[in-house]
């Protein structure tokens, strides 16, 4: 957010070419500056892909390893909550994209509206996620803090066709729930960071920023928000959906 500092260089430094006050002096054109900003943001997102990628790979390997435990564990996911949260995140991605469009159109009111709706969707997502975590706590499904194999060594009436697991395999449901809490926890942390940044962006937008032609911050935040949405797009089937019938 130091664009003002750079932009206030003496005009004499620019020689023959007058240009946008938002163009930093080490870039030749506004297009080049935008390109560099997007490129930098994408490099950061690549590190994020590898960060989540390691955990996805761990999930894949342990699911093959302790397959019955992972099936039994995922049968305890709350389907309506996962589906609703997926929908909420997709809606928030849409409103974020519309926010970027509004900044592009230099429409301050629309930008404020869409950022605010995105913020609300983000908070709703975290609320539903907290509800699910609370439910798992109540059922003693939290490895290390509050865990019991009881639900997995007995037949559950919701899944009468499930065979009860042997005690040693039932212990392995902790691998499922550890990965579940790690993946959804780190994802929720990203959501929390996103929601916090959104509050700051709303404040700046309210004071008139991002709608004067310089909107790199909004564009890059949009990329971040969509990325977090994509992570959930993969978490939802892996944790909730793929083991419903095994």
């Amino acid at each position: 957010m130091d664009s003002q500092v750079i932009a206030t260089q003496p005009t004499s430094a620019h020689g023959e070419h007058g240009h946008s006050p938002h163009l930093r002096h080490h870039f030749a054109t506004v297009a080049q500056q935008r390109e560099a900003a997007s490129f930098g943001m994408w490099l950061f997102l690549l590190t994020e892909i590898m960060f989540f990628g390691g955990m996805f790979t761990a999930y894949l390997i342990y699911r093959n390893w302790y397959y019955p435990a992972f099936v039994a564990g995922s049968h305890w996911m709350i389907m309506w909550a996962g589906t609703l949260n997926t929908t909420v995140l997709i809606c928030s991605s849409f409103t974020m994209a519309m926010g970027v469009y509004s900044a592009e159109m230099r429409n301050r009111k629309a930008l404020l509206r869409y950022l605010f709706i995105t913020l609300c969707f983000g908070i709703v997502f975290l609320g539903i996620k907290a509800y699910e975590w609370h439910d798992e706590w109540e059922h003693h499904h939290v490895p290390g803090l509050n865990f019991s194999i009881n639900d997995f060594t007995h037949v559950d009436q919701r899944y009468p066709q499930d065979k009860p697991l042997a005690p040693d395999m039932a212990e392995k449901t902790q691998a499922y729930f550890s990965l579940y809490f790690m993946l959804t926890g780190v994802h929720a942390l990203h959501m929390l960071v996103g929601v916090s940044i959104l509050v700051v962006l709303l404040f700046h937008a309210w004071r008139g920023a991002y709608t004067t032609g310089h909107m790199t911050t909004i564009e890059n935040f949009g990329l971040y928000w969509h990325f977090v949405d994509i992570v959930w797009i993969f978490l939802f089937p892996l944790l909730y959906l793929i083991s419903r019938h095994q």
Binding site: S93, L223, I230, I233
Partner: peptide
Amino acid sequence: AIAVTKAVLVILFFM
């Protein structure tokens, strides 16, 4: 497959 399709849509258009 559906998740990959959704991710591609988000990357191509929203991003």
